[in-house]
């Protein structure tokens, strides 16, 4: 009933096609409830995508890795590791050192469906998360579906906020995952797999959040804030 109404409203505002069912179901969930919970009780998903390049308009998703986080805990049992089937591209293998067959992995549409099911209404956490979200959104668009609706936290932003001299302009690469991991003493082996990076980002987030909490940043709203400011 609700679904139908939703589709009609959408049709009225100019979209020609109704959203596919899987997206409809995803979009109908209550994303605002997180705003009413203390951060410790909010389920988050730390994720990363591995792509053929940095242009969300053109490039393709090669794999998606994700792990669930709540409070100070990561749940290895609730982790996701998806290889997406894409046309073989010699350049990709050269960059990532991953050699795979064209038939490896699952169809992108299936991967996206599984991803949406996995994240539910959780808060998405990622390093430069906007890019990964843009990649997923582009894939969703290709499936005639709408964009992600989850709240998001960018660990690169958090790191920037923790930067001791906020007035100084950030230098290139200063908040890269590699540099930050080194700064927090995290081992960075097997980088450049989506799931490995998601895991690393998750641990980095735990450290960053601890530092932010020490400075009085507690709520989800405070964490999702983008602007750098004096803390």
């Amino acid at each position: 009933m609700m679904q139908k109404l939703f589709q009609e409203v959408r049709a009225y505002f100019g979209s020609s096609e109704p959203y596919p069912d899987f997206y409809q179901q995803y979009a109908e969930q209550d994303f605002s409830k997180n705003l009413r919970l203390p951060f410790e009780e909010i389920t988050c998903t730390v994720f990363d995508t591995e792509t053929t390049g940095l242009d969300a308009g053109k490039d393709k998703i090669l794999s998606i890795g994700a792990i669930q986080l709540k409070g100070n805990e990561l749940f290895v049992g609730k982790s996701l590791s998806i290889l997406v089937r894409q046309k073989q591209d010699f350049k990709i293998a050269a960059i990532h050192g991953i050699i795979r067959n064209e038939e490896d992995g699952m169809e992108q549409s299936e991967a996206i469906r599984q991803f949406l099911e996995f994240i539910g209404t959780s808060v998405l956490i990622g390093h430069h998360v906007d890019f990964d979200i843009a990649m997923i959104n582009a894939a969703l668009k290709g499936m005639q579906a709408g964009p992600l609706k989850n709240q998001k936290i960018d660990t690169a932003h958090l790191a920037a906020r923790l930067n001791s001299s906020p007035d100084a302009l950030p230098q290139a690469g200063q908040f890269s995952l590699d540099v930050l991991c080194k700064q927090y003493g995290l081992v960075t082996k097997a980088r450049h797999t989506a799931d490995g990076d998601a895991y690393l980002t998750a641990i980095l987030f735990l450290h960053l959040r601890h530092r932010l909490r020490e400075r009085g940043v507690h709520s989800l709203q405070a964490l999702t804030q983008k602007k750098r400011r004096l803390l």
Binding site: N72, E73, F75, G77, L206, H210
Partner: peptide, 11 residues
């Protein structure tokens, strides 16, 4: 067993 581990951060 590894697949069931929970990673916990203790400040």
């Amino acid at each position: 067993l590894s697949a069931q581990v929970v990673v916990r951060f203790i400040p």
